[in-house]
């Protein structure tokens, strides 16, 4: 299935756009999703400590991705 990714900060700059799509199988974990993403964008390796949000909420690495989930890559934040 295709999932929609939202990209921010340094990840947006590395990938070169603020949204993209990724092909994964249903019930992929966040851990596996991160590996797939980094395989596709090897330049992200030094920045792989990013967090992941699904539908605007942080999730942990065991979360199983569902169809229609909107996944956001959250590199270390620096507001304030």
């Amino acid at each position: 299935m295709q999932i929609k990714l939202l990209l921010f900060g340094i990840v947006k700059d590395i990938v070169g756009k603020n949204t993209t799509e990724l092909e994964i199988i249903p019930n992929t974990t966040i851990t596996d999703f991160k590996s797939i993403l980094i395989e596709q964008y090897p330049k992200l390796v030094p920045y792989k400590n990013f967090s992941v949000a699904v539908n605007e909420n942080y999730v942990d690495d065991t979360y199983l991705i569902k169809a229609n989930d909107v996944i956001a890559i959250i590199p270390p934040v620096s507001g304030g």
Binding site: F8, I74, V77, G79, G80
Partner: peptide, 11 residues
């Protein structure tokens, strides 16, 4: 907490 959790980035 804002500096740790809120998805805002500064360049």
């Amino acid at each position: 907490t804002l500096k740790e959790t809120v998805p805002i980035w500064k360049k």
